[in-house]
Design a protein around this nucleic acid. Structure first.
Lengths: 128, 128
DNA sequence: GTGATCAGGTCTATTAACTAGACCAGAGGG
DNA sequence: CCCTCTGGTCTAGTTAATAGACCTGATCAC
C-alpha cells in the first residue's frame, strides 16, 4: 500500500484486457479440444461427445454454447425427431485454428521433454 | 455399444495422448498467463502476483509448482529471511513462447470480432 | 526488549464448478 | 405397446477455487 516498496511492473493483466478476455474463455479444460475436433468438419453433438470421450454432456453443452456465443462455431438445429444438431467452425473459428495448430504441434514435439521433466522432478522430490 | 450405429470417427482424444496431456496442463485459468508474464524476465512470487492481480496466492503457488514440475519454469530459492524466491522460464518454457505469442496476437487481432459476436448473440437470445 | 514488518507460502472455511446419472420429448420400428 | 433414437436439462454428490487468517524468523523502530 505504501509507495516505498513498489516494484515496477510495466504490464499488469487486469480482467478487462483482450488477452485475459480471450484466454479466460478458451483457457479451460475443453474449448481448445472441441475446436480442434471441429477442424475435421461439421459434427453432431454425439460425435463430438464420442471424439472427446471423457467430457460430460453438461460441460460439452455449456462449452459449445460459449463457443457459439463468442462466434467460434455455428450451431444448426434441424427440427426433426429425434433432433439433429450440427456444429461447425465459423470463419473466426477457422482462423483460430492457425495459432491452435502451432500450439498442438509444439505439444507433440515437446511432450517427451515434459515427461522427462516430470520424472526428474519426481526423483528430486521423491520422498513426498 | 452395438456396432450398427457407430459413426466413424478417425480421431478420438483419449487421455493418454500428447495433445490431451499438454492441453490439460496449460489449458487452465492461469498457466498461459503466468508463462506470458515470465516472458519479461526473472520475477519474484509477489511480482507475478501483482502482475496478474486477481489470482489467489494458493492458485499461483499451485500453478507455479505444476509449471516447474513440467519443466516450463525454474524456481530458485535464496535462503534469506524474509525468503526470496525467483521464477524464470527454462529453455522449454521459452520455446513455448513462440506458439503462445501467436495465440496472444490472434487474441488481440480478433478480440473485437469476439465482442461483436457476443453482443449479436445477446440480441438474438435477448429474452433469456 | 517489545512489537511490527517483510516474502512466500500453507491452512481452513466458504463458494463455485464439474461429474455422473436419471429424465424428457415425440416420431418410428418390432 | 413398448423400446429406441438424439440433444439436451435437472439434481445430487464430489471436486476445485477463492478469500483471508496464519506462520517463519531476521531486522528495525521505539
Amino acid at each position: 500500500m505504501s509507495q516505498g516498496n513498489l516494484i515496477s511492473i510495466p504490464f499488469v493483466f487486469e480482467q478487462p484486457c483482450p488477452i485475459r478476455d480471450v484466454l479466460d474463455r478458451i483457457g479451460d479444460q475443453w474449448s481448445l479440444l472441441i475446436l480442434e475436433v471441429l477442424e475435421h468438419g461439421t459434427m453432431r453433438f454425439s460425435e463430438i461427445e464420442r471424439a472427446i470421450a471423457d467430457i460430460s454432456k453438461q460441460m460439452l453443452a455449456k462449452t459449445l454454447r460459449r463457443l457459439e456465443e463468442d462466434g467460434f462455431i455455428r450451431r444448426t438445429l434441424y427440427p426433426q425427431v429425434p433432433p439433429r444438431v450440427e456444429y461447425e467452425l465459423t470463419e473466426l473459428g477457422r482462423s483460430f485454428l492457425v495459432p491452435l495448430k502451432n500450439l498442438i504441434a509444439w505439444a507433440n514435439e515437446n511432450h517427451q521433454a515434459i515427461c522427462e521433466a516430470r520424472s526428474d522432478y519426481g526423483v528430486k522430490n521423491g520422498g513426498r
